[in-house]
């Protein structure tokens, strides 16, 4: 697996027990990650095509961000909320159910996923979907938009944190590296980047298409504080995000390299990269659901 070549940075902030979530929280975070996967399968059945595996690799990240790390309120437009956006917008199918679960829009909207005039499509749209902080779909813009939000917080005296998830294939876009320079130059310590290092993109393994390693060295060289973490370990993720928030001394943006498995939870999707995009008919979806439900609780 390609991601195994990404080395761990030390010390591992994600193992700092002072910030570890309790057992009850861990159960919730695992449950919501499972919920995201199950809903992904259900929604793609409506659309008849979708990005199962891109959403599955990010399920624990979505869960930990929205049910633990981020400061949110019932009002999706609250000015001091933490922000989240993703350059890999095609994983939105895994996030929409969480936003509905948080009460930002109704179940009826979720159930109309991709139908004519519905706000929910393959990519997140801030003009249509309550709870989406920034639109995406064209790969490579999000980290720059996140830099703007983080700098804006400082200029306006606000203390929200901006989280930006990008794909590992997204690192091939030049704009990502413009944002890397910018974020470090302005010392955006309120910015947390996340690379969903699932190892695959549309045309194949990232390292076969256009290699991006050594990721850790690159971001460190660009002036970011880099943390490598198991992107499916909710305890480690929650610990890391809490620790990053608590670190008032940091003067640089942080980049979390989340080692993930594309298609995590459905066995054949984990081993066959062709599933970046696809469709499971209802019978096959049921078998996938059984596998997701059999994941460790």
């Amino acid at each position: 697996m390609t991601t195994a070549t990404t080395p761990h940075a030390t010390p591992a902030l994600s193992a700092d027990t002072r910030f570890a979530p309790d057992a009850e929280r861990v159960r919730l975070l695992k449950d919501r990650a499972r919920f995201s996967r199950l809903e992904t399968v259900r929604l793609i059945e409506i659309a008849k095509v979708g990005h199962y595996t891109s959403a599955f690799s990010a399920a624990e990240l979505f869960s930990v961000l929205y049910y633990d790390a981020m400061r949110l309120s019932d009002d999706p437009n609250w000015a001091d909320r933490d922000r989240f956006m993703m350059g890999k917008g095609h994983a939105a199918v895994g996030l929409f159910p969480i936003l509905a679960d948080l009460g930002y829009f109704g179940r009826d909207i979720l159930d109309g996923y991709t139908r004519l005039g519905n706000p929910l499509g393959d990519h997140p749209d801030m003009t249509k979907v309550p709870g989406i902080d920034f639109s995406s779909g064209s790969i490579g813009h999000a980290l720059s938009a996140g830099c703007g939000m983080a700098l804006s917080a400082r200029m306006q005296g606000q203390d929200y944190v901006t989280y930006v998830m990008i794909g590992d294939g997204e690192l091939q876009e030049g704009q990502v590296w413009e944002a890397a320079l910018f974020g470090a130059h302005y010392g955006l310590s309120n910015l947390v980047g996340i690379i969903d290092r699932n190892g695959y993109q549309l045309d194949g393994a990232v390292d076969d298409v256009i290699g991006v390693e050594p990721i850790v060295d690159k971001w460190q060289a660009f002036g970011w504080e880099v943390h490598v973490v198991d992107g499916h370990d909710v305890t480690a993720l929650a610990t890391l995000f809490r620790a990053l928030r608590a670190d008032a001394a940091r003067t640089r943006p942080a980049m979390v390299v989340a080692r993930t498995v594309k298609g995590k939870g459905v066995s054949y999707m984990e081993t066959d990269p062709g599933w970046h995009l696809g469709y499971l008919d209802p019978g096959d979806a049921e078998r996938a659901i059984a596998e997701i439900n059999a994941m460790e609780a």
Binding site: V266, G274, W275, H276, Y279, L280, D281, D284, R287, A288
Partner: peptide
């Protein structure tokens, strides 16, 4: 658990 239906497809 591999897909069995001819209606299922991937990229």
């Amino acid at each position: 658990a591999r897909p069995q239906s001819a209606n299922s497809w991937q990229y």
